[in-house]
Simulated assay, not measured.
Amino acid sequence: MTKSEAEENGWFVVSAPPSQIFLWGGVSGMAAGVIAAMRQYCWGKTPQGL
């Protein structure tokens, strides 16, 4: 949701970025995917390989 969408609908935006995400993913494949998606969604950055 964007600030303009909230204003158009009379909503309040409460921003609190996640500080912790707990995942059970076996060999961490799911955890890595979720963290990559959260980083891109929250901060607009795409993870870079080594």
Rank of each mutant, 00 (worst) to 15 (best):
T2Q: 01
A6K: 00
G26H: 10
W11M: 08
G44E: 02
S19N: 15
L23A: 11
P18K: 09
K3W: 14
F22W: 14
W11S: 03
E8W: 01
A32S: 14
T2M: 01
G26W: 09
L50I: 02
G10M: 06
G49F: 01
L50E: 09
I35P: 00
V14P: 00
A31P: 00
W24V: 14
T46I: 07
N9A: 11
V13A: 12
E8R: 15
V13H: 09
E7K: 13
F12T: 05
I35N: 08
A37N: 06
G26L: 09
W11N: 05
G29K: 08
K45Q: 15
T46K: 04
S28P: 01
W24Q: 08
K45A: 13
V13D: 05
G10Q: 01
P17I: 12
A37M: 02
C42E: 03
P17M: 12
M1T: 05
Y41E: 03
V27R: 06
E8Y: 04
K3G: 04
C42W: 01
G33E: 08
Q40F: 10
V27I: 07
L50F: 05
A16L: 13
Q20V: 15
T46P: 02
M38I: 01
M1Y: 03
G10D: 03
A37P: 00
L23K: 11
I21Y: 14
M38R: 05
A16Y: 05
A6G: 06
M30F: 04
S28T: 07
V14H: 01
A36Y: 06
P17K: 15
T2E: 10
A16Q: 14
Q48D: 13
G33D: 03
L50Y: 03
E5C: 02
M30V: 14
G26V: 09
E8G: 06
G29H: 10
M1N: 04
E5S: 07
S28A: 10
L23F: 07
V13L: 15
W11C: 05
V13M: 15
S15R: 15
L50V: 04
M1C: 06
T2F: 03
F22V: 09
A16S: 13
A32F: 01
G33L: 07
W43S: 11
M38Y: 11
M1F: 03
T2N: 04
S28R: 05
F12R: 11
V27A: 07
T46N: 06
A31Q: 06
G49M: 10
S4H: 11
P47G: 07
V14T: 13
Q48H: 06
W11A: 10
G29W: 09
G26F: 12
A31R: 05
M38E: 07
L23S: 10
P47E: 13
A31N: 07
G44V: 06
Q40Y: 10
T46F: 02
W43K: 08
K45F: 03
V14L: 07
M1G: 04
K3I: 00
W11T: 00
K45L: 12
P17W: 12
K3Q: 07
A37S: 04
G44M: 00
A32C: 13
Q48Y: 02
M30D: 01
A16W: 02
S28K: 08
Q40I: 01
G33A: 11
G29L: 11
